[in-house]
């Protein structure tokens, strides 16, 4: 690699032009409008088909999260955040973790072990397979989708100034 510096590229700065910098682009918006339903469906396909083919909840959840990101890129983060309310993201992430634990804990309530899927078959006649599907679809996928989109919104919003919350009220 030569020492010639590729410095002629446009100076890219982002400190000042934060949220107002969004520019509508008809091309991107209409392309995303076409693609987003497909990628969302594909995410769900991976998620539910993981038991029989490569892929699974982690990948599926990531694709679903990426779809949200795609929409946010095309239509602007603020409007996406309004559409997908913060509550949804929290419920996905925290709810997913809680659901995963719950699927594991229910057998323990009956004295079986944590995540003992065959217990569901013995006690309720639910096939073992559905236990596996449950932690994948109810646990991992929502966490991944929620955290991916949540991270996106949080990072886009940036840090709060430090002084605001370290107040001495109690």
């Amino acid at each position: 690699m030569s020492d010639r510096q590729p410095n002629e590229k446009p100076v890219v700065r982002g400190a000042d032009g934060s949220e107002s910098a969004y520019v509508e682009s008809q091309v991107i918006m209409s392309t995303v409008r076409v693609i987003a339903p497909f990628s969302l469906t594909y995410g769900f396909f991976l998620l539910f088909h993981g038991a029989d083919s490569p892929g699974g909840s982690f990948q599926g959840g990531a694709i679903i999260g990426a779809t949200v990101l795609m929409i946010a890129f095309a239509f602007g983060i603020e409007s996406t955040r309004n559409w997908l309310r913060n509550r949804t993201v929290v419920v996905l992430a925290a709810g997913g973790a809680a659901m995963f634990a719950l699927v594991g804990l229910i057998p323990m309530a009956y004295g079986a072990n944590f995540l003992e899927h065959p217990f569901y078959h013995e006690q309720f006649g639910i096939k073992t397979k559905w236990g596996l599907e449950a932690i994948e679809a109810l646990g991992v996928a929502p966490i991944v989708a929620g955290v991916v989109s949540g991270l996106f919104f949080v990072i886009a919003a940036g840090a709060l100034p430090a002084t605001e919350e370290v107040s001495e009220d109690d």
């Binding site: 446009p10 700065r13 982002g14 400190a15 032009g17 107002s20 991107i28 995303v32 603020e78 886009a156």
Partner: peptide, 15 residues
């Protein structure tokens, strides 16, 4: 591609 080009065109504002 969308993300990087938006980043470039909007001078750092991906939003």
């Amino acid at each position: 591609a969308v993300a990087i080009s938006k980043f470039t065109v909007e001078r750092g504002g991906v939003l």
